[in-house]
Amino acid sequence: MTDALPVVLNINGLKYEFEVLPYRSLLDVLRDELGLTGTKECCAVGECGACTVHFDGRSINACLMLAIEADGGSVTTIEGIAAPGEMTRVQDAFLEHGAVQCGFCIPGMVMSAEYLLARNPHPTEQETREGLSGNLCRCGGYNRMLKAISSVSEESTP
């Protein structure tokens, strides 16, 4: 009844071809089959944002998307957000502002922050909070994250 189906996916600029069972989420496949464990699993029901990736340029929860639904699309994960060995301004700013505690939520937070700033380079604090509202940090490091994001926003020319 449930055979594996072929999938072609562009992930972080590389083409992947594989077969997947239809009831496997994109998150399962990224982590368990492709070894891209930067994207985290926490709630698995869309509430925490630890699994945030960009699918066809839009921020989504990888736990709520089937891998088969992603067929033909392109995915950017935290591993692909900057060139190998480099970091984005958001990642640098998170470090500079000590915004990382245990680190578990950070890949998702960075993906949400990148998505926010790409669409709105100078968000108000309210807009930043709204942009991160799908990401939970159990260490409660939100204020430093807000400062980090606002520092990136201030650097870029309005």
Binding site: G49, R58, S59, N61, Y115, L116
Partner: peptide, 9 residues
Amino acid sequence: VGSVQIRNR
């Protein structure tokens, strides 16, 4: 409704 990620889907 939900969050940015939820509304994008």
